[in-house]
């Protein structure tokens, strides 16, 4: 066991842990952005709200989400700790530096970008995660006509036993679903232009952070191979620096303009 302790307390070991948690967070973003695409459905949020119930009740997903919270905290604070140690490795700084001649600025500003993201995650989770778990979100009742597929929604004032109630009224040929209305919270949040601006800025930070971070994670794990470097660079740029942040940023903008 001592060889593990020695390995993970070394500089390379520390970086391996940051790389592993970072790549895990990258994989989470794929799930998060795909699920949130349901915000774009024209169904008054039924798909999104029922998906939210699934994501907060499924035992497997709940387990992974706790691993995720630990990973976010570890990645952020270990990263900041390493950045602090790196500062100490050069106590007297250069009078003149021309770093743009030898490296990309994203790679030199991971600490700053990461700090922006940490602040964003705190705001984001207190607005949605905390509100959903501990706040007082209203309930909404969806009635889906089983013949035409038409969905109507109305506020629901009563109490339900769990997070969701779903039943079929056979006489009227409809399916009734009652859930917490996180969708309404999303709509409300993004009426505020400041929030929209914060989200868009944070997504720019995600883009730059992952453009370097995704490639860097593989390099730290020793996965640098002529045959695969091309695909890693491709994914870093197109998937993690463009598609994911742009799709995320489109969500607040969509609700603001809606």
């Amino acid at each position: 066991m001592s060889s593990f302790t020695k390995m993970f307390s070394s500089s390379i070991g520390n970086k391996i842990l940051v790389a592993l948690t970072g790549l895990f967070l990258c994989s989470f973003l794929i799930i998060h952005v795909s699920g949130n695409l349901q915000l774009f459905y024209h169904d008054n949020g039924m798909a999104f709200n029922t998906y939210t119930v699934f994501m907060t009740t499924n035992p497997l997903i709940k387990t992974v989400s706790y691993i995720l919270y630990v990973s976010i905290l570890f990645h952020a604070f270990k990263g900041l700790h390493l950045a602090y140690k790196n500062k100490k490795a050069r106590p007297v700084s250069y009078a003149v530096t021309n770093a743009s001649a030898n490296s990309h600025w994203t790679s030199r500003n991971m600490g700053v970008l990461g700090t922006i993201l940490l602040v964003f995650i705190v705001v984001h989770m207190s607005d949605f995660w905390y509100e959903y778990k501990f706040g007082h979100l209203p309930f909404v009742k969806y009635e889906k006509n089983l013949t035409t597929g038409e969905i109507t929604s109305s506020p629901f004032q009563g109490q339900i036993s769990g997070k969701q109630e779903q039943y079929v009224v056979e006489a009227e040929n409809k399916e009734v679903t009652i859930v917490k209305d996180l969708y309404a919270e999303v709509q409300e949040e993004f009426k505020n232009p400041l929030m929209v601006a914060l989200y868009v800025i944070a997504m720019a930070a995600v883009s730059f952070h992952l453009f370097h971070g995704f490639k860097s994670g593989f390099q730290t794990l020793g996965l640098n191979h002529k045959k695969y470097n091309g695909i890693i660079r491709f994914l870093a740029l197109y998937v993690f620096a463009i598609i994911i942040p742009v799709t995320f940023a489109a969500m607040p903008v969509y609700f603001f303009l809606k």
Partner: peptide, 28 residues
């Protein structure tokens, strides 16, 4: 007391002998 590598690639770019970053991956 050297710092930790953040894979900026500045070292490879400035190395007078063109030592490649792939060596760092091999060491890792």
């Amino acid at each position: 007391g050297f710092g930790n590598c953040t894979n900026t690639g500045a070292c490879e770019a400035e190395c007078p002998k063109g030592i490649s970053l792939s060596n760092i991956a091999r060491m890792n």
